[in-house]
Simulated scan of single mutants.
Amino acid sequence: MTDFEIQRRLRDLRLPVEPSHDLWPGIATRILAAEAVAPVPAVRRRRLPLALAAGVAVAAVAGVLSVALQRQPDPQPLVHGEATGLPGIRGVELDRIPGNDPRLAGATLVIDSAQQQLEQALEQQPEAVFLVGLLNRTHAQRMKLERIGAQAG
């Protein structure tokens, strides 16, 4: 076989080829046979009542827990300049909170902690440029927090 014949046969492969007989009757019988064998799945209508019952149960539990948490007394009395009134945040001085807004106490506490940790890490690794970048970002976050406090106050 020469190169010319190979190229001619390859060109002939690009042309559409019609099957020798009609394929659709065989396909149609297979589809009908598969539909007759496959059972139709039963429609489940039980899911909606169960979902509604679960939703009501979750709402009831959430309501009971919220009432129980509201009635729970505060374990430590608030001292002026020491606590912010937010649960779980103690020891933040009111003069460190931007604008004396107790809602910003949590963010102030996190930023102070991050700044202290970054300064300690810089003492251990003074050539770490990425720590300086993180410290700069922390200062930028503190400035943003102070702007928010000034707008709120």
Rank of each mutant, 00 (worst) to 15 (best):
D3F: 11
D3Y: 04
F4T: 13
I6Y: 04
Q7R: 13
D12Y: 03
L15F: 02
P16W: 11
E18N: 06
S20H: 06
S20D: 14
S20L: 09
D22G: 03
W24Y: 12
G26Q: 12
G26T: 15
G26M: 10
I27T: 09
I27A: 12
L32P: 00
A34V: 12
E35A: 13
E35S: 07
A36N: 06
A42T: 15
R45Q: 14
R45Y: 13
R46G: 15
R47F: 08
L48R: 14
P49F: 05
L50Q: 12
A53M: 10
A53E: 08
A54S: 11
A54W: 09
A57M: 12
A60F: 10
V61D: 02
V64R: 09
V64A: 14
A68G: 08
L69G: 04
L69A: 04
R71C: 01
Q72M: 09
Q72L: 06
P73A: 03
P73T: 02
D74N: 10
D74T: 10
D74C: 01
Q76M: 10
P77G: 04
L78S: 05
G81N: 10
E82M: 11
A83F: 06
A83I: 01
G85N: 03
P87Y: 05
G88W: 07
R90W: 08
L94C: 02
L94W: 13
D95C: 06
I97N: 00
P98C: 01
P98A: 10
D101L: 03
P102R: 06
P102G: 02
R103Q: 14
L104M: 08
A105E: 02
A105S: 11
A105D: 01
G106I: 03
A107H: 15
A107T: 12
D112I: 00
D112F: 02
S113N: 12
Q115G: 02
Q116I: 06
L118H: 01
L118P: 00
E119K: 08
Q120R: 07
Q120I: 02
Q120G: 01
A121W: 02
L122E: 03
E123A: 14
E123C: 00
Q124I: 05
Q125P: 00
Q125H: 12
A128F: 04
L131A: 07
L131G: 03
G133D: 10
L135I: 01
N136S: 13
R137S: 09
Q141A: 15
R142N: 06
R142Q: 15
K144C: 01
L145Y: 02
L145N: 01
R147C: 00
A150E: 15
A152T: 11
